[in-house]
Design a protein around this nucleic acid. Structure first.
Length: 603
RNA sequence: GCCCAUGUAGCUCAGUCGGUAGAGCACACCCUUGGUAAGGGUGUGGUCGUGGGUUCAAUUCCCACCAUGGGCUCCA
């Protein structure tokens, strides 16, 4: 990322600037609300925040006033003075600040830092003071407020945030701000935000008519007009090709089932509140499915299986419904109806490693195709505290399967990081975070081990010794959901899709309406060649037609005027602005077909 | 679900300190027949998110709800 020095962020000057800016902001806020309560205010990526408990809600005007006051404080050239104090003295200093007292207790008892994370050793208690403001803080800070540049700070927004990140706690008011070493860096950062906004999938997706929402259909339930329909079709075609080669078998399963299935799977007690409520017919409850696993398990269980049949890989683009909380919906990234690139592989234990690595290799092939260069694979593990609550209560199997995944990844030479308390309820998983070119992070792929459901569903196969054995199940979704993948691809490509993914691949542009018939003939020929094409016969000038095609990001434009028509040729304009005049249609068709067949990134 | 902000034509937005609204683009028609990112004119188009309340009068003020956005929490 830009502006990230090679040194650790925590040791950088920028970190101290932002941390200090948070204190200066807190001073300004407390001057405005003398009875206000302060909590914590750390530096974060690109800026800082501070959480307050205030007598009234902040307005945008308040933010302006606070920002103005911050500039004055900075101009006051105040020293940041650190002092280490005993806990009791700290309690005296912060006697009117209940949140600080709670933090002091946490520090003194040992064990917890200001974010509630466990600490290796009991920390010293320190305070920092600048001007009139004293804060409980471990630092570090700049030496003097003059090290901050008044023109390099900006308050960005007010937001709600729960005390200590727990939704059962009081909601505080969080002010987000950004601070930089100089005004130019701030300007660059704001420009970067602006550029990211231009690529936002919600904006571009609307402009290019890839997806839409409708109030009467419902929140989180996207509709895909024809342009989105084309993309979905192309992605499914790709997935099918890849999966066919890897030995997957396609299945189709219903969108709803009786309650019994989800009781059996064990999903209901964990996830009832994220499921659409059941409908009851003739005394039987039905749920729309939030995932496909139990259905696939039923297919596996439908007949006796031999070790010779394994691994069995059942794949489906399943349509699932999850009742995400209203505030969690986000464009195409978090929706309530999803089309998942799902598959379950049933494997014997000695096949696990090869199969698991095979899936990861499949991910890497997809990433290469889409030009995804930045990604991180994360081994998501259980937590001891979550056993029996968030996670199936069998620590032995957790540790065993986590080991299996770890060694599979190591043997496959695939770099990964590990994270506690991030697993699925039935087993550990590899989650893949990818970053689009604008730096937004997405959880795309997931590859999960399931040691719980196969036993619950009484899945088994006859092993070499003629004995029944429970298979392991690998859940995998390398292309996530159509919804999330398309959202990602829109931002990743900024709408400039490779030809194979472009909803409209060619637009024929007659210069005057005398060429309209010729244009229609070209459309017909290209269509027969399997190219997605249309002709612009509107009553506009060529320039306007080109502009319209450029704005829809059509990769190829075929401009035809009298010259081309008389010679039986076409002139090609590529989306990047390059041109190739008076060429044979067959020559262009061959180029287009080749790019499509290769799924080539370039035009 | 929680805090805050926003919601005016198909799209992007202006506006009304209470008297039922306007621009550009798009669309239709007319003129123009133009050589690589916007030719000109005319016109169609809005129960100003939904439902209540206050008022002689509400798109404007108040309340509730819905949706979207920025966050928090959550994400099998």
């Amino acid at each position: 990322m830009m502006n990230q020095p090679a040194e650790k962020y925590e040791d950088s000057k920028l970190y101290r600037i932002r941390h200090s800016a948070a204190h200066i902001m807190a001073q300004a806020v407390l001057e405005m609300f003398p009875d206000g309560k302060v909590t914590i205010g750390p530096p974060i990526e690109n800026g800082f925040y501070y959480d307050f408990d205030l007598p009234r809600n902040l307005t945008p005007e308040d933010l302006e006033a606070i920002e103005k006051r911050m500039r004055q404080i900075i101009a006051g050239k105040f020293e940041f003075v650190k002092k280490v104090v005993p806990a009791d003295e700290a309690r005296q200093i912060f006697k009117d600040q209940p949140y600080k007292l709670e933090l002091i207790d946490g520090l003194e008892k040992g064990g917890k830092d200001e974010y509630g994370n466990p600490l290796a050793e009991k920390p010293e208690i320190s305070i920092y003071q600048q001007d009139s403001f004293v804060d409980l803080c471990r630092g570090p800070h700049v030496a003097n407020t003059r090290e901050l540049k008044p023109d390099a700070i900006k308050l960005m927004s007010v937001a709600g945030a729960y005390w200590r990140g727990d939704e059962h706690n009081k909601m505080l008011q969080r002010i987000y701000g950004t601070a930089w070493e100089n005004p130019q860096q701030l300007k660059d950062y704001l420009w970067q935000i602006e550029e990211a906004r231009k690529r936002d999938h919600r904006k571009v997706g609307k402009e290019l008519e890839i997806f839409m929402f409708d109030d009467e259909v419902g929140p989180g339930l996207p509709l895909f007009p024809p342009n989105g329909g084309v993309m979905i079709e192309q992605i499914e075609k790709l997935a099918k090709e890849m999966e066919d080669k890897a030995g997957y078998l396609r299945v189709v399963t219903p969108n709803l089932s009786k309650e019994d299935l989800f009781i059996h799977s064990g999903h209901l007690p964990y996830y009832a509140e994220s499921m659409y409520p059941p409908m009851e017919l003739e005394g039987v409850k039905y749920y729309v499915k939030p995932m496909n696993c139990p259905m696939h398990h039923k297919i596996f269980a439908s007949k006796p299986r031999s070790y010779r049949d394994l691994p069995i890989r059942l794949a489906e683009y399943g349509t699932d419904y999850r009742y995400e909380k209203s505030g969690e919906l986000f464009g195409l990234m978090r929706v309530r109806s999803l089309h998942m690139n799902d598959a379950h592989m049933y494997v014997a234990e000695d096949q696990f490693e090869e199969e698991f690595i095979g899936v990861v290799d499949l991910y890497l092939k997809y990433f290469k195709l889409f030009g995804i260069e930045k990604y991180v694979m994360r081994l998501s593990k259980h937590s001891k505290e979550g056993l029996g609550k968030k996670y199936v209560d069998n620590e032995r199997l957790w540790l065993k399967t986590e080991d299996m995944v770890r060694s599979a990844m190591q043997h496959g030479n695939i770099p990964f990081v590990e994270a506690e308390d991030e697993a699925a309820f039935y087993g550990p998983k590899i989650d893949v975070q990818v970053w689009s070119v604008i730096g937004r992070e997405f959880s795309l792929a997931t590859n999960q081990v399931d040691f719980a459901q196969p036993a619950r569903f009484d899945l088994k196969f006859i092993n070499k010794q003629g004995v029944e054995e429970v298979p392991l199940c690998i859940h995998r979704a390398p292309l996530s959901t159509h919804e999330r993948l398309i959202g990602f691809l829109i931002e990743h490509y900024g709408g400039n899709f490779p030809v194979w993914l472009s909803p409209e691949q060619v637009r024929v542009i007659p210069i005057t309406d005398s060429q309209n018939d010729y244009a229609q003939g070209i459309v017909k020929q290209l269509r027969e060649a399997g190219v997605r094409v249309s002709a612009d016969i509107s009553a506009q000038r060529m320039n306007a037609k080109i502009r319209a095609a450029q704005m829809m990001k059509v990769p190829y434009m075929l401009v035809i005027g009298e010259n081309e028509m008389n010679a039986g040729l076409v002139s090609l304009r590529v989306r990047d602005g390059s041109q190739q005049n008076n060429i044979q249609l067959s020559e262009f068709t061959a180029r287009a077909k080749q790019k499509i067949a290769d799924r080539a990134p370039e035009l």
